[in-house]
Nucleic acid binder design. Sequence first.
DNA 1: CCTTGTGAATTAATTCACAGCT
DNA 2: AGCTGTGAATTAATTCACAAGG
Lengths: 275, 275
Amino acid sequence: MVAQRGRRNGAAAHKRTRGGATPDADNAPTAEIPAVAENGADPEVRAKSIPEAAVARLAVYLRILSAMAEQGATTVSSEELSTAAGVNSAKLRKDLSYLGSYGTRGVGYEVAVLVGQIERVLGLTRQHKVAVVGIGNLGHALANYGGFPGRGFPVEALFDIDPDLIGVPVGGIPVTHLDDIPQVCADRQISIGVIATPPAAAQTVCDRLVEGGVQCILNFAPVVLQVPEHVEVRKVDLAVELQILSFHVARRADNEPNGKVAESTVAGNGAVLQS
Amino acid sequence: MVAQRGRRNGAAAHKRTRGGATPDADNAPTAEIPAVAENGADPEVRAKSIPEAAVARLAVYLRILSAMAEQGATTVSSEELSTAAGVNSAKLRKDLSYLGSYGTRGVGYEVAVLVGQIERVLGLTRQHKVAVVGIGNLGHALANYGGFPGRGFPVEALFDIDPDLIGVPVGGIPVTHLDDIPQVCADRQISIGVIATPPAAAQTVCDRLVEGGVQCILNFAPVVLQVPEHVEVRKVDLAVELQILSFHVARRADNEPNGKVAESTVAGNGAVLQS
DNA sequence: CCTTGTGAATTAATTCACAGCT
DNA sequence: AGCTGTGAATTAATTCACAAGG
């Protein structure tokens, strides 16, 4: 059907360079997979083309499932899991179906199996070394996470420009100067760079990370980064988040002219809910 | 079975209460406006139903436009602005069209006009008082932003559970105990609550914020919050962001198999490489 | 000529609804 | 009986492409 031609891989050089990606709705170009992947390596149905939106939710399911496993649960139904994740069960099942068919009809899913499959699809069986750039308030907080979510994302390098910080260990790792980013990232095989610098420094830092071979960037600076197209950027933007909330407040105020309605909510305004 | 049992508010059995929202693609139920709005209030074309995705981008455009204005630019074309924002120009124009028609064909847009219109639509002409809960590393960082993005989001209350912190001013504001959340939020008319607590505390804190009349929550805790449906939740989830990046790394590795399988990459053994 | 603004076309994401298996 | 898995239907978001207007 769609013959999705057009995407030229060769030189292309379309300066796509999109690096924006609001934590919200922007970051979502759909993770199309070129459909190639003949592989033949895996007996399982290799991931074919999981929608980006589903990927984000799978990560959420994974966390919930891990918690359930820790509490001793061995199986879970789509209804339970979807409720815990705040989505509806049809969406959840559709999302899980991208993993393959690991449920048992009439019963549900085995928690351990789902955990394993989600980890596989998200690539969490590999390790992804992280570098944090900008050891201010936020960078400090990030560095102290010490090996981010669970294991799998060890922080292996810290960078800042402040001479007083260079060499000082934060969360066990000594801070290196910004100038050494390319070198150190290349040496330590950093795969994810986290930018927590002031906005003015962000693009330069980004360029150096790319120079050092970093392919993925998580950007906390309120700047739209320009990157070559093989680099993946995700953005966490506080200002944008707050402004989106502001929009919703304003919208509510516009629609519901009078001041309060408090909890008449529930069935009250059918307008806002989905179906 | 973790908790989800008690979440029944009112009748409505499964009435949603979504609070998840991955910073990415999850947070995006499309900001449909109830269509009611007989309006008749504004001479301008009142916001009719801006797509959620567009709202997020408008916030980005706003920042870029503000920077341009500061540099003395007075007009801008869709091409320029879209490049700076990392989107294509058609999308940009479509987004701006939700504001009304403020461009001049053959010329472009007046920067100042766009800034004003975006601020209007995002509700940035109001003030939104913010409370930060959880004054750890992250909360500290947030509190010190002191009046978040530019103006319009003053931090007016800080909360924590640690007795050593109570009363201590952070960024000029004394920390109050978690127990006083409902009271203080109601008194100070807080409209946005930021949750930066450990995951275990997040739901309780959330409940108290809601009790205090807070309608919007920005959640940094890795937990899916359950909230009544009139409350808007946005989530910033570090783990999810990293896992999405991980997914893209894996995807690339699968598609672009330089060597065959190269080094023990794909699944198989959990322990890959050193640590 | 410009560049905007927008219907129409396309593509992605979500939801429905039910067949199929346990 | 019950729950998964998934085509089909629906709804949202993006992109195209060009008429309209300075």
